[in-house]
Design a protein around this nucleic acid. Structure first.
Lengths: 248, 248
DNA sequence: AACGTTTGTTTAGTATCGGAGAACACAACC
DNA sequence: GGTTGTGTTCTCCGATACTAAACAAACGTT
């Protein structure tokens, strides 16, 4: 279908830029926002008033803050996701058995979204956040089960942007890595997303379609060698398998 | 400050109406949305394209769906909330010790938002959702520690809308109930929000300011008599106290 | 306590941009 | 191969969402 990603409604773009900025700095005032966003003060005021009236922003004496509407919508959409429903228990078990951080990741266009996490520590990507598919173990696990054409399109359309020294940026090496991921049902990430963060992931495939991935991650010094390669990998892979069965 | 709750930027209102509608029906098409929202097809298309370009909506072959951006923002704002940070552990303990549903509630304008929940069952209000303060135990607990003037303003500005037969809708009875809540540090809700749902709540007061409330709730047939009045009430109240100490 | 400074709010007025409606493209389905 | 039902594009006009400047109100400072 045609190019549908054009910003035609500028006002909406401005409103959401304001929302993003309010999120970044955890609330703020009119002039403050007007300056950083390069919009007139009155414009910002109009948008904030509208967002207040709609219940997405609240105004405690001059400073504006985001309300928890986003939590409501975010939680609701996650709750309805069958993959999330099926994976919840397994993620918890996985975190317990490995003693590390266990994640559930689902694809969204060209990105991998971290839908759920147990054992949260300072993970490079927060819950709800996303990374390009090729730059994380979970993403590569998903990519590995897409068709060759889909991978090609992914590469040409979005490119392979670099996150660290180790990020896979060459299409050929990506393709060969995806092949070996498919063989073992396991994907690794040794500092490809964040220098000192390692990760093991296994895809959740339903009807030949990769609908998500399970991953376990930790700081580089804690996740190494045999523990990473064998023990954890086995647990991750069997967790993914269990979730697949639940989804049939 | 002046009346800041006016919708001046209509385009934003339309965009967010589309978002809400997409949320309600869990995705949808252009004509579908245009019909129910009474906006022209091209307008809906423009808004959807814009929302796609901004990453809040995704377009899988005709049907549009919300992305997990809302989860990101919702989770992030919650994570930054000091009350949430302080309460997390206590809520978990409370759910474990009572065997019922434990909630953390924070005030947002005239509403009580359910920020966190452990032991989720079919609670009338989802996480992230909100109720008017006077219509829930947690809300009343918060209201009880606001100044008399603030309560008066609450009543005159927003009124006391009825949820069930038992909802407090008379200002005088509300005031007297708030007084007795303040005496015991405990608020009850016997079907005032939902016919067959009971609740006990205790406020979290920091520097004389009610910044939230802890509540335990359950179906009417499970939460009754002595168990509700004494055992649970004691646990709820001490959990709130512990959180208060953590927040100092 | 009066001043200056900094904030949020309001007000006009015009250029712009968002919206209606119809035409187009494309698929699925008899 | 029509015939629906989609989503998408086009064009034009009027409402609308901006800018700029004045206003109000709350500080902190001298």
């Amino acid at each position: 279908m045609g190019n549908t990603d054009t910003i035609t409604v500028q006002a909406t773009a401005t409103s959401l830029r304001i929302v993003e900025e309010l999120y970044e700095r955890d609330g703020g005032g009119v002039t403050e926002l007007a300056d950083t966003l390069d919009v007139s003060k009155s414009a910002v005021h109009n948008h904030l008033s509208t967002l207040c009236a709609l219940g997405y922003v609240t105004n405690s004496g001059g400073t504006y803050e985001l309300t928890h509407q986003f939590l409501r919508i975010g939680f609701g959409t996650r709750e309805r996701n069958p993959v999330y429903q099926a994976a919840q228990r397994e993620i918890r078990m996985l975190a317990r058995n490995t003693g590390a951080v266990a994640n559930l990741v689902v694809p969204e266009d060209a990105a991998a979204v971290y839908l759920h996490r147990i054992g949260s520590r300072d993970h490079p990507i927060p819950v709800g956040g996303s990374v390009r598919l090729h730059a994380a173990a979970a993403g590569k696990a998903i990519l590995a089960y897409r068709s060759g054409d889909a991978v090609d399109e992914y590469v040409t359309r979005h490119g392979l942007d670099r996150k660290t020294e180790r990020t896979v940026t060459d299409p050929a090496t990506l393709r060969s890595e995806l092949r070996s991921i498919r063989d073992r049902n396991i994907a690794f990430d040794r500092g490809e997303l964040d220098e000192n963060w390692q990760c093991v992931a296994s895809p959740i495939v339903v009807d030949g379609d990769p609908v998500g991935a399970v991953s376990v991650s930790g700081p580089s010094d804690e996740m190494q060698g045999k523990r990473l390669e064998e023990d954890t990998a086995g647990l991750v892979s069997s967790a993914a398998k269990t979730i697949e069965l639940e989804l049939l």
